[in-house]
Design a protein around this nucleic acid. Structure first.
Lengths: 341, 341
DNA sequence: CTGAAAGCGCTTACAG
DNA sequence: CTGAAAGCGCTTACAG
């Protein structure tokens, strides 16, 4: 480990390569950028070889300053400790890497002030575009980005306007409802998720709509909003069971929330699925490995991330990408069964 | 949402402010950087006001090119979808923000080639330093960083040499052992965690050492290594129970692994803690909200992240920070009880 | 096919 | 206290 500051060992630059080869820096630049037909094959060859030997790596900072493109995109998430968001990020990151971009991610904790601050930070870093995975309903996407003319894409959490890449959560909620209804459940509770996020709202609405169409009314007191965390899931489940103790099934708008709910059910001596069936959402890896493997709606989070980045890259290339809603899929496991006779 | 490319609306620059004020760009730079006593108070005042009005934001790319300091640090993690690493990152990010740095994070998936590639990427981005939270025992920290003279700090996962910031995992393992021994357990299994990472190895060794000192021998077949995930935890628990079906307690080197183990125990009709007591590690929020609240060793992950960044910043300022081992703490919950009589 | 020049936006010795 | 100049490392029209 070194204690010297950065740049102690002088790195190779275009200029140093040029000097060593007796060429002009501009020629070396062209040779390396692979402008085909604009520079002789032999020159390209010798430049490439020396660059390799000297361990030359283009200074992306300088390039960014010169071209006005940083090859950096920003990404806003509520928090990265939420595996759901970390998974979307993973998709974004994969697509970034393939396109020689890099993604600067920032937590906003569902806090409006912090969010503004983070956007400012990203803009100061000259990001070419931004992926917003933390949108709250009723707010605009991001004033500052609009003002700065920096393109952005909404991911996962959607808004009525703007370029959106997410899962069809209305359909996802519907799939969960159809599954429980087909098993014979009639008294069902819903832990609806974050009520300021499209994900929470639409999953619940899709579920409730499907129930209503089947002639099953879910009373209001059996629908409890809840932030997306294990702890909040446990709390919301308690509220739900107090208000509607006779439910035979619960739809939770996320796997973490479902995990919290399992704890509360157990505390009350209710077992899954014998007493209460449980459906989660997102189909995180843990769903399959939970104490009782969890039936869950797969929301294709990595693809959401990849898709959002692809749309942003298209935008940056002057394209006109359209919004995308991926189709979710129900994965049935042991946590759901017919209600007790 | 705009479809224009970046930079469409021309942003205020030092030059544009200077022109508007009839000052030289260097004066404006000094006024804004707050060089005290080097520029008149009235000038500072007028420059500040205009900068505010025009929404001036310093171009950090240009500054980086000029000063040779990017105010960007890199961070390597095995994967960010692991809540443990995401939590360490959160600490790093908080400390970064306070110091006007930004952290570029990259997944390396415990894969050596991908890691080299990621380091190259970070170096190309002119990072001032790097936090390595993905070290594997037996490998060096990072050749490329040494060669490039870029300072780095090891976080969470430690190596025998280099600047390390982590938890005292030997002690953590010991705390878990003392707890189970004091409850009266004598036949104990260990799911030892990733055997290429210091965290996995030291937690297990601390545990085994404490048992040995108490005169309790844990046979080799009751110690199963395991990657840090729910899925792997479930698998390892099965291996363990096949090899040592008579255990009355299990120490799992992470909470995720413990969660996986709960599933396996349940499958086999064993209940926690009546048949088998279970101790996890890290004390993630979910530990408290698991179906059976999990006894766990708190590894102070946010502090590890903060400490690692503080050490790196010290290094970048020419300081000589020393390694840091934080003291873990046992948090007792419902998953541990005396063995059945 | 290669060279020479300009310039991205900033900071920092050097003058005055 | 302010100005003028140089330069970080690159790219890209413009010549030749």
């Amino acid at each position: 480990m070194t204690l010297d500051g950065p740049g102690t060992r002088s790195r190779a630059t275009l200029t140093s390569l040029a000097a060593e080869l007796g060429l002009h820096v501009s020629t070396v630049s062209r040779a390396l950028s692979g402008d085909p037909g604009r520079v002789s094959a032999t020159t390209v060859e010798s430049v490439r070889r020396l660059a390799e030997q000297r361990g030359y790596r283009s200074n992306l900072t300088a390039r960014a300053l010169r071209t006005g493109r940083s090859s950096v995109v920003g990404m806003l998430v509520p928090r990265l400790t939420d595996e759901v968001l970390a998974t979307v990020y993973e998709g974004v990151d994969l697509a970034s890497m393939e396109a020689d971009y890099v993604t600067l991610v920032a937590n906003t904790l569902d806090d409006a002030d912090l969010r503004e601050q983070r956007v400012d930070l990203l803009l100061g870093r000259q990001v070419d575009g931004v992926i917003l995975a933390d949108s709250l309903l009723g707010s605009n996407a991001a004033d500052r980005l609009d003002k700065a003319g920096v393109p952005y894409v909404l991911a996962l959490r959607c808004l009525p306007t703007g370029l959106n890449v997410g899962t069809d959560d209305l359909l996802g909620g519907r799939l969960a409802a159809e599954h429980l209804l087909s098993l014979g459940h009639r008294r069902i509770g819903v832990i609806a998720g974050e009520d300021r996020a499209s994900t929470g709202v639409e999953r619940a609405r899709g579920f409730l709509d499907a129930c209503a169409e089947a002639g099953i009314a879910i009373p209001e007191h059996a629908v409890v909003p809840c932030r997306f965390s294990v702890t909040e899931g446990a709390r919301a489940a308690a509220v739900l069971l107090d208000a509607a103790p006779d439910v035979t099934a619960i739809f939770a708008a996320s796997d973490n929330v479902a995990l919290g709910a399992v704890g509360t059910l157990r505390e009350r001596g209710l077992s899954v699925p014998d007493d209460v069936s449980l459906v989660g959402y997102n189909n995180l890896p843990m769903a399959a490995s939970m104490p009782v493997p969890l039936t869950s709606v797969d929301s294709r989070l990595v693809e959401v991330g990849r898709g959002a980045m692809a749309a942003l890259l298209d935008l940056l290339d002057g394209g006109r990408p359209s919004s995308l809603r991926l189709a979710p899929e129900l994965v049935v496991r042991a946590s759901t069964a017919p209600p007790r006779a």
